[in-house]
C-alpha cells in the first residue's frame, strides 16, 4: 500500500488516479503534499500533475457518469470536511464507477456511495446557500467586492455564477479562509491565490455614494418585511446559520 501525495489541485488528484491505475499500486492514502507529516512506515509517492492524463481520467469518467456525475466528483473534491480521508473516499467512488459504470451513482446502499455523496452534499449545499447569501458592496472605483468565509472551496463556482448573473460589473470575491480571490473583469473570470495587492482591496474599503443609500434601504426592508407576531428565531438560524451573518448587509450585529 502506498501513500500518494500531489500538488493539491484537482488535475493533480486526477493525475494520481491515473498513476494508480497505470502502476496498479493501490493507495493507503491520498493527501496534498505538505499537508500532513510524513508517515515513516509506508512508502510515499509524489505524483506530478499532468493535465493530459487528468483529461483522460475526466473523459473516461464523463463517458460513464455524465457531466452531472463528474460535477459531483468536483464538488466532493472541493469539500472542506474530512481533509485526511476525503481524497481516498473519492478515489473509492471512482474505482466503483470504473468497475460498474454509471450505476454506481444509484447504489445508495453502499458505504462508498453514501460517503461520497455526503461530501458532495456538503459542498453543493454551501454553494447553493452562497448563491443567495454572498453580498457585494460597490466601491468608489465602480468595482463590486464581496468577502466570505466558506467551509468548502467554492470560489470558482461562485465566480463563474456571478460572472453570468452580473455580467456587466467588474467584481472581486475574497475567500478569507483560503485567501483565494475570484476576479471578473467584465468579460472573463478567474480564481487566483491571494497577493498583498489583492488583500489591500479589502483593507481600506472606500464605498461608492450609492452603497450607503442601498444598504440603508435594504436594512429597512429586511426589518419591515418580517411579521412581528410570527417571530421565529429558531427557524431563521436553521435556514441561515449564524456563521454566515457576519457578512450579511441586512443584519446589524
Amino acid at each position: 500500500m502506498i501513500r500518494y501525495t500531489y500538488d493539491g489541485t484537482f488535475d493533480g488528484f486526477l493525475s494520481v488516479v491515473f498513476y494508480i491505475y497505470e502502476k496498479k499500486l493501490p493507495p493507503s492514502s491520498i493527501i496534498p503534499d505538505g499537508e500532513y507529516q510524513t508517515d515513516f512506515f509506508s512508502e510515499t509517492v509524489f505524483v506530478p500533475t499532468d493535465i493530459s492524463k487528468a483529461m483522460r481520467v475526466e473523459n473516461s469518467l464523463t463517458s460513464k457518469i455524465g457531466n452531472i456525475g463528474f460535477g459531483q466528483i468536483i464538488s466532493a473534491f472541493s469539500c472542506g470536511f474530512e481533509p485526511e480521508n476525503k481524497d481516498l473516499k473519492i478515489f473509492d467512488f471512482i474505482r466503483l464507477v470504473l468497475r460498474v459504470g454509471g450505476d454506481a451513482c444509484k447504489m445508495y446502499h453502499l458505504h462508498t456511495v453514501s460517503d461520497f455523496y455526503s461530501l458532495v452534499l456538503k459542498t453543493d449545499k454551501e454553494a447553493q446557500h452562497m448563491q443567495g447569501f454572498l453580498r457585494f458592496k460597490s466601491l468608489s472605483n465602480g468595482i463590486l467586492a464581496a468577502e466570505y468565509s466558506p467551509d468548502n472551496d467554492i470560489t470558482h463556482f461562485l465566480t463563474s455564477y456571478f460572472s453570468r448573473r452580473n455580467s456587466e460589473n467588474k467584481f472581486i470575491i475574497r475567500d478569507t479562509i483560503r485567501e483565494v480571490y475570484g476576479l471578473y473583469n467584465g468579460s472573463e473570470w478567474t480564481v487566483v491565490p491571494g497577493t498583498p495587492q489583492l488583500s489591500s482591496v479589502f483593507e481600506d474599503l472606500v464605498y461608492s455614494e450609492k452603497e450607503l443609500v442601498f444598504r440603508d434601504l435594504w436594512q429597512q426592508y429586511y426589518d419591515t418585511v418580517s411579521i412581528a407576531s410570527r417571530r421565529n428565531e429558531r427557524q431563521r438560524t436553521q435556514f441561515m446559520p449564524r456563521r454566515y451573518w457576519k457578512y450579511l448587509t441586512e443584519i446589524v450585529i
Partner: peptide
C-alpha cells in the same frame, strides 16, 4: 439543484 459541474468543466476545458 445547481451542481458545480458547469462551472468547473468550463474551467477545465478552457485550460487544457
Amino acid at each position: 439543484s445547481p451542481t458545480l459541474a458547469a462551472a468547473h468543466r468550463n474551467r477545465l476545458l478552457s485550460e487544457s
